[in-house]
Amino acid sequence: MSEKIKFTIDGKECYAEPGQTILEAALDNGVYIPSLCYLKDVIPAGSCRICNVKVAGRFMTACTTPVAMGMEVENDIPELNELRVSIIEMLFVSGNHFCPACEKSGNCELQALAYKYTMMVPRYPYLFPEKKPDSGNKKLFIDRNRCILCKRCIRAVKDEQGRSLFAFKNRGNELAISLDHELAENISDELAEEAMEICPVGSILKKEKGFQQPIGHRKFDKQAIGSDIKSVIK
């Protein structure tokens, strides 16, 4: 078996398997690096930039950067947290995030990150962009107003043959996720539910399922995101 790689996060000694990214290794070592587009065991996209860490004075996304021997990673520092908050605020104003009316509220990872950093109001002006939802599928409802373009669905929601049910269409400002209606026509309840889980926000919803947990019993009502990751190093 190959040697473990020794490195540090905020001065704390950590160990990584060869080839592991900073984010994976951090989780294994019980260190929380905030992330949004990252999904365990799925090829990382590095699209949300929330997991930005500082290595040797440079910013890099922890989800795409492999650990190297002796790396000194800075994570929970004011400079990075300030950047992360500004990204979260930007995501809030660049979509239409009506939390009070959202089925995912309380279980939404974007909202949970805003809670974690006690975001009271975004510093940027609201854009109120026009986005078209897609209700064409029998089991799934796609609300692009809430989409943060993290590509989680594209990377992780696949049929038995490994084909992606979702894809990007258009470019730049017009970039949007779209559902392959032919592939998804006979989507199983399980996969539809999984798709809803995979979406960090309320953009992919399983029809006739929402507001099932009362306020106070949802994932992030009482516990901050990442607070379940406990240090394994004494």
């Binding site: 239409n96 009506f98 939390c99 009070p100 009316a101 109001v121 975004p122 609201y126 109120f128 962009p129």
Partner: peptide, 14 residues
């Protein structure tokens, strides 16, 4: 929320 970002009435903004 309504004072901060328009809230539900702002659903008409599009």
């Amino acid at each position: 929320e309504c004072a901060i970002m328009g809230g539900l009435p702002a659903l008409r903004n599009g």
